[in-house]
């Protein structure tokens, strides 16, 4: 079980958080302009990376804030956490 450094609250147990999957998938501003394939790409397709992955987490049993986290899925090492809207770090 990880220790996650919530950018708003500090270090907390993983049990306080929920994972929201891959980060930086922007909802299209004009969905109606998209083809079925383009919309499906946004809606369904995820990378499922083995290695360094950028993902969304929610401090569900804490401040309830969403934030981003960089985690290596092969060894669970957390490289960085940063607030929503902040630029992703270069890992």
């Amino acid at each position: 079980m990880f220790v996650i450094n919530c950018p708003h609250c500090g270090e907390r147990d993983q049990s306080e958080f929920s994972c929201g999957g891959e980060a930086h998938i922007v909802r299209p501003k004009q969905p109606t302009e998209l083809s079925d394939d383009e919309w499906a790409e946004y809606l369904f397709m995820r990378k499922n990376t083995k290695g360094v992955q950028f993902e969304r987490w929610n401090h569900a049993h804490g401040c309830r804030k969403w934030f981003n986290m960089v985690r290596d899925t092969s060894n669970d090492k957390i490289h960085a956490v940063y607030k929503m809207g902040e630029k992703p770090p270069v890992i």
């Binding site: 004009q30 969905p31 109606t32 998209l34 079925d36 919309w39 809606l43």
Partner: peptide
């Protein structure tokens, strides 16, 4: 309405 959550999916094949 131009958009709402799920709108685009209602026009998928």
């Amino acid at each position: 309405k131009y958009d709402f959550i799920g709108k685009r999916s209602l026009y998928r094949s």
